Simulated assay, not measured.
Amino acid sequence: MGKLKIEQRVIGMVATNVYLGINMETKEAFLVDPADRAEDIAQWIRQDGVTLKAILLTHGHFDHIGAVSGLKREFQVPVYAMGAEAVVMEDSTLNLSANWASAFTVKCDHELADEEKFQVAGFDIVAYHTPGHTKGGACYYIEEEQVLFSGDTIFCHSVGRTDLPTGSMGELRRSVQRMLQILPDATRVMPGHECDTSIADEKRYNPYS
């Protein structure tokens, strides 16, 4: 039994999965893709009695970053994202907030590179650059817990859309195939929308495998 407890809430106008990863030994935590409603997420974190250490962003679309600024003010924690995604996060047209909601932008504190390893809340995390849905999409893999936070790269038996700014179907297909090839079958996949899946299931059922 691992030390990672994953709590999930569906938040925002397009039902984004927001994940709170908790180290049950230390009560430190990280947050993945805080979609919206910063006050509600902050209350969730406080009610759990955990210490938030970082925010991880799989990509820069508005429905994955809407609560970042509010949570940074509340908890004074760094934001991690792929360096290639800065252009999306920092442009309200590219992050789609100008079209769907009130225009806003976000900057990350730690710009990651492909296969960069870092530690948050007592977990060793590998960031994989998975372009396609956006040019700087990322998946976060925790080997010791056999879990992948896949954002909008891999969905259950599907993939993210590629018809938005900086998207590319060719790159997305390559990104999906790479993840399915290099990660163990038992890896649990936690996507940005809808239900979780596994690498084994995606090898069998994902049409882009």
Rank of each mutant, 00 (worst) to 15 (best):
V68A: 01
T51W: 03
D114F: 11
A103R: 01
H61D: 13
G66P: 12
S102C: 08
I41P: 07
E116R: 10
T51G: 13
G60A: 00
T105M: 07
G122H: 06
V87H: 09
D36A: 12
D48S: 11
A86E: 15
V87G: 08
T51E: 13
Y80G: 05
S102R: 09
K72S: 07
A35W: 01
F104H: 04
L94H: 05
G122K: 04
V87T: 11
A127H: 13
A42W: 06
L94G: 00
D109L: 00
D91G: 03
P78E: 08
A121F: 02
H59F: 04
I125D: 02
E90F: 06
W44D: 06
A84Y: 11
K107I: 02
K53V: 01
V106H: 01
I55C: 08
K53D: 09
I41K: 02
A98E: 10
V106W: 01
T51M: 12
L112P: 14
V106R: 00
L57T: 06
E90P: 07
L52M: 04
N99G: 14
A101I: 10
L56H: 05
F62G: 02
H110A: 12
E90T: 08
L52K: 05
E116N: 09
E111Y: 14
S69Q: 07
K53G: 04
P78T: 07
F75D: 04
E85W: 06
Q76S: 15
Q43C: 08
I41F: 09
L56E: 04
S92W: 00
Q76L: 12
